[in-house]
């Protein structure tokens, strides 16, 4: 079955890059420009396997999004990966404690993203 991913970033350019990489891996990708929009999409009922989440976004930050998602047992299977310019180890700990599964510091490349997906067992079938 086709895997589905949410790409949550207020930068359209970043959404395009990440969607391009995931699309190339065989993912069906949907974009959202902040955590609030992403929550709306999830709450509409569609199931996703993976969300790549920026930290700093207007309205709802990526961190708050992770906290909200982890309050809901029905989203327990959703793998959450922070992709952010926040590179402080304290930030990373906070995100992991809140329930993020992985963390990628920007700048990153495609290879790094693939390696992180492999760690989570959600590398898709192609690529």
């Amino acid at each position: 079955m086709t895997k589905k991913a949410l790409v949550i970033d207020d930068s359209r350019a970043m959404r395009t890059i990440l969607s391009g990489i995931l699309g190339g891996l065989g993912y069906e990708v949907q974009g959202a420009e902040d955590g609030g929009r992403a929550l709306d999409i999830l709450n509409a009922g569609e199931l996703f396997d993976l969300a790549l989440v920026d930290w700093n976004m207007p309205q709802m930050t990526g961190y708050d999004f992770v906290c909200e998602v982890r309050k809901e047992p029905r989203f327990a299977d959703l793998r959450l990966v922070m992709v952010t310019t926040e590179t402080e180890i304290s930030r990373m700990s906070e995100a992991l404690e809140a329930g993020a599964d992985e963390y990628i510091m920007k700048p990153f490349n495609k290879e790094m993203l693939l390696e992180k997906l492999m760690l989570l067992g959600v590398e898709a079938d192609r690529g």
Binding site: I89, M92, L96, A100, Y103, F108, M112, E115, L119
Partner: peptide
Amino acid sequence: NRGLPAHLLVRYF
């Protein structure tokens, strides 16, 4: 940033 699980980075570095 490459291949290292984030929880191990936080724990051991």
